[in-house]
Design a protein around this nucleic acid. Structure first.
Lengths: 167, 167
DNA sequence: TTAAACTTTCAAAAATTACTGAAAGTTTAA
DNA sequence: TTAAACTTTCAGTAATTTTTGAAAGTTTAA
């Protein structure tokens, strides 16, 4: 496997994984491209490499910046804007954990708390609803708390912790 | 919030969360419905409750069974088949972790190993590709190893471990 | 100011994914 | 066997999501 084959394989695999986890393909592929690029890339560079339109590129770069894993960089004396990705894998994981928690997990936890907190009228179905949503609430809440730990610790906490668990 | 409001809120929230994480809405909603149902439900029951077609119900029940989180149950003397969900939240988490690892993470890890293992020709871009895919490989591999630990431990290991980490 | 160089927005089109419903398939009781 | 009761499959349709491309917007240098 030569450089180009490896690059294409990485980009398309990352895109496919993104899709499976609810992240759109172009966004994941732009991230993959920037992740392995030693130099900042312009919008043109990205459009050309991935064969996607200007609009698509612009929108997905915005999203990646909203997620806090891609940044703008302007080269002195140049009008054009360049983009670089967060390069530290730990920081990437922190950032993704932080955003998914904030956008997706926290709102669900809120609903689970509300739902599991309804008045128990003693009927079988109400009891089951309360019991089952409560157990989900407890799992989601501890998982989320762990995610926040990750987010707020120093950058290599994840690896250290995973290592501890694995041993 | 009364029982019906709570039930509907839980089902639609669970469906929306599924969508965000790459799981189709009907599948997530069927799971939610069975999760809080004290009795096994027939296909008719599910169709009626969620307003979805027979075909859709059948296909998504099959997927839930493939994931190992929903089971068939036949009542003695009845022709109809009934469905129940795994009720233990720990077992649910184990099963989901196991399946996502097997279907999605393991194949990606394989690609990351291949890609990061290409010959280093000394060029800047090749060095960056190798460095960055290797760091992703290491993260994914320890995360996956942890997932397997979860899968292979006794059922309440997750909570215990999360608790340990949180303190 | 102006205009060139660039980015963003968004309505329309394309692509993908999910859903339906009827036909085919299966199982079971008699 | 047969036929009723049920489930699965799948081609066609619908809904959703993604992508395009051109117009509008912004920034900067002169």
């Amino acid at each position: 496997m030569n450089y180009n084959e490896a690059k294409d394989k990485f980009i398309s695999t990352w895109g496919a994984l993104g899709t499976l986890w609810g992240i759109n393909k172009a966004m994941a592929q732009i991230h993959a491209l920037l992740w392995i690029s030693p130099e900042p890339l312009s919008m043109e560079d990205i459009m050309e490499e991935l064969h996607i339109s200007r609009g698509n590129t612009s929108m997905n770069l915005r999203q990646l910046m909203d997620w806090g894993i891609v940044f703008k960089e302007s080269k002195p004396g140049e009008r054009k804007e360049y983009f670089i990705s967060e390069k530290d894998v730990q920081e990437l994981a922190r950032q993704v954990a932080k955003e998914r928690s904030r956008r997706e997990i926290k709102p669900v936890i809120k609903v689970l708390r509300e739902v599991s907190g309804i008045e128990n009228d003693g009927s079988k179905k109400t009891e089951e609803l309360i019991k089952q949503t409560k157990s989900l609430y407890e799992l989601a809440d501890s998982a989320d708390t762990m995610m926040n730990k990750i987010v707020n610790q120093e950058s290599n906490w994840i690896t250290k912790t995973l290592m501890k668990l694995i041993k």
